[in-house]
């Protein structure tokens, strides 16, 4: 495939199980079985160069696990992940070179910076590990440039993280992520811990940086309003699987999957149009014992016998793809 049009990141049937069994001794003494939690189950999607792909879903849907699989914090249980056409798992030697082209921004700005380090050391860590600077002066200049790029002052490098507010810390996190000149940023709920006015600052900054540096984002969030604002395309996850993937505008205008519709409906109405809301009953089921068939069927108003037995696959629909029998059959 032509390298320029080739997707930057490609997940093919990526899956990750977690062993949540009781300790060995308990299993032997109490006869408790081994238990596997399917956090991510057969997830496939492409991230195109220069775009923002968002993954959205409620807690426990596996969106953060997908992020950690891509950057290599977790190992895949099944499937494969390609970066720029190369299998990340297969390359032992070049993996480091490939990994420096992706970085991650975390959710909690209070936990993602080492409290004992000065900001300049935090930001410079990737340069030092990757040996990107020839000398201390070059490193200092780079750190100062990065800090200015994210809206901080070069002098802030001398301070410690606790001297900054949550939003400023998130800026430091972004500066560190940008330090090694990555092409791809995985952003795991980067604004969820921030107040709205600060969230707006960070979202604006991320959009600016994307434009200036040609970055590609994978943006993880539980907030559909934020996602629709920043993303080009949106993937909706439920219990470890992608249930709908579509252009942001398309998803907003015509959500296909009943779960997406429910999420859209749950967004509080700031315009106060007074439109009646029908809150969806029920909650996310226990991921250790997911329902048979479509995992959403116990909460779905459109479920029928097929939904309860046969698991729907992600199939293309106009402007995207949805995993729903009702959509496929034209019932919805």
């Amino acid at each position: 495939m032509d390298p320029a049009s080739r997707p930057l990141v490609r997940l093919i049937g990526a899956s990750r199980d977690f062993d949540v069994s009781r300790p060995w001794l308990n299993r032997v003494l109490e006869g408790a079985p081994r238990r596997l939690l399917r956090a991510v189950d057969d997830v496939s999607f492409d991230v195109r160069r220069g775009e923002t792909l968002a993954l959205v879903g409620e807690s426990g849907c596996g969106k953060s696990t997908v992020a950690r699989l891509i950057v290599g914090l977790y190992a895949l249980s099944r499937g494969r992940i390609e970066f720029d056409g190369l299998d990340l798992a297969a390359l032992e030697t070049d993996a480091a070179a490939l990994r420096r082209r992706m970085q991650m921004i975390f959710q909690d700005p209070y936990a993602s910076l080492n409290p004992r380090w000065r900001v300049r050391d935090i930001v410079a860590e990737p340069i030092r590990v990757l040996r990107l600077a020839d000398n201390d002066a070059a490193e200092g200049a780079r750190v100062a440039e990065l800090l200015r790029q994210v809206g901080l002052a070069a002098e802030d490098g001398e301070k410690y993280p606790h001297e900054f507010s949550g939003g400023q810390r998130q800026r430091i996190s972004i500066a560190r992520a940008l330090c090694g000149n990555p092409e791809f940023l995985v952003c795991d709920e980067p604004t969820s811990a921030l107040d709205v006015s600060v969230q707006a600052q960070i979202l604006n900054l991320m959009a600016e940086l994307q434009e200036r540096l040609g970055l590609t984002y994978l943006f993880i969030s539980h907030n559909l309003a934020v996602v629709l604002h920043i993303a080009d395309r949106v993937g909706v996850m439920y219990l470890g699987r992608v249930v709908e993937l579509a252009e942001a505008a398309q998803l907003f205008a015509t959500p296909r999957h009943p779960y997406t519709r429910m999420l859209m409906d749950a967004i509080p109405d700031l315009e106060m149009s007074g439109k009646p809301r029908t809150p969806v009953a029920g909650e996310v089921p226990n991921p250790l014992a997911p329902p048979a068939g479509c995992a959403f069927h116990p909460r779905c108003p459109h479920a029928n016998a097929r939904c309860r037995t046969e698991r729907p696959q992600l199939r293309p629909v106009a402007g995207g793809a949805a995993a729903c029998h009702a959509v496929e059959e034209g019932r919805l």
Binding site: R68, V71, G72, L73, A96, R99, R100, M102, Q103, M104, F106, Q107, D108, A111, S112, L113, N114, E125, P126, V129, L130, S173, R176, G180
Partner: peptide, 21 residues
């Protein structure tokens, strides 16, 4: 904590993470 995960994403050696972070 996420700062340790960040160091892992950067690609630091486990020993370096233990000692420095």
């Amino acid at each position: 904590k996420e700062y340790v995960q960040a160091a892992r994403v950067i690609g630091r050696h486990p020993l370096a993470i233990m000692l420095r972070h």
